[in-house]
Amino acid sequence: MNPTAVTAVGALPAWPYPLWIAHRGAGKLAPENTLAAFRLGAAHGYRMFECDAKLSADGVVFLMHDAALERTTNGQGIGGELPWHALSQLDAGSWHSHSFAGEALPTLEALARFCQANGHLLNIEIKPTPGTESATGEAVARVAARLWAGADVPPLLTSFKPDALAAAQAAAPELPRGLLVDTLWTGWLEKAQELGCAALVANHALWDSAHVARVHGAGMRCLSYTVNDEWVAQHLLALGTDGIITDRVDLFSPS
């Protein structure tokens, strides 16, 4: 399915993704951005996941949120400054709990195999090491285009960094994109349109009826992060938003 195909005159473009998206695999129930987390999120019924992708020093796309290794691995320094062989040896699970000790950092390719084998969908946040925005956007898009070639539903590529999205757009224009925003900075909607985005992914507190109408009127979908409270979810559903990224895979049923 082409997620940007318009189904009717004046209608929003078709949207093949589910409402509920598990943040970093399984929220806080497992070490984020590890295969263990995605397996646990799937066990809770989720069929779409959000992950963070960055670039190793030797050009391998791997999953990790922070630039620095210390919070979520037993390594030190900047992850993107190390080659993949060194990154692949790190323990990315012990920081969370003993039961996940020894869990490895996965590549995007490993996660793609898991998702495709199980019919899961993916939101890949392009999370560049500072200074590598364009290189990371291009690499993530090229790898994703290769891994999901011929897939009915491609991954959604998102980023807070317009330069990363612009590079992704140039490298793989067929993949849908979404601009992430934490504040409504001057020109946010125009930038999303310039980047050919299919979605605007905002801090949930930014959405109101006027902004939802404005984004929908521009032909884009409205997604929210990170929604962990029932009342917030109900508010977003009442506004008619299109996607909810949550840590609370144990609280919200995705069905």
Rank of each mutant, 00 (worst) to 15 (best):
Q76D: 09
I78V: 15
A218P: 02
E50K: 09
G119C: 07
D66S: 00
L29M: 10
T34F: 10
G77A: 13
A168K: 07
E138F: 03
G25T: 11
S209W: 05
L237V: 14
C51R: 00
I124N: 06
V212T: 14
A149D: 07
G45S: 02
L179D: 06
S253M: 03
A145N: 05
A37E: 01
A168N: 03
L223K: 07
A86M: 10
I244P: 06
H65L: 05
T183P: 00
T107W: 08
H23W: 13
R177S: 05
T72N: 05
H98L: 14
L189V: 04
D242H: 15
K191M: 10
S56L: 10
E230F: 04
I245T: 12
L82T: 06
D229N: 09
P106N: 09
L157I: 12
S99I: 12
L157P: 09
L90C: 15
W95T: 12
R177L: 08
H65W: 01
G178H: 06
N33P: 10
T72G: 00
Q116I: 01
S224D: 01
V201W: 03
W207I: 04
D163T: 12
S255H: 11
M48L: 08
E50H: 10
Q76N: 13
L19P: 06
G219V: 03
A166W: 00
F49E: 13
T226M: 06
T34M: 08
G10I: 12
P254E: 11
N203R: 12
M1G: 07
G243A: 14
N74Y: 00
R221M: 00
H23S: 11
D182E: 13
F160T: 01
V212R: 14
S253Q: 15
M64E: 02
E174I: 02
G59H: 12
A8P: 09
P3A: 00
P18F: 12
A42C: 02
G243Q: 10
G80K: 08
P83C: 13
E133L: 00
C115M: 13
S94A: 15
D250T: 09
A37D: 00
A14T: 01
P130D: 08
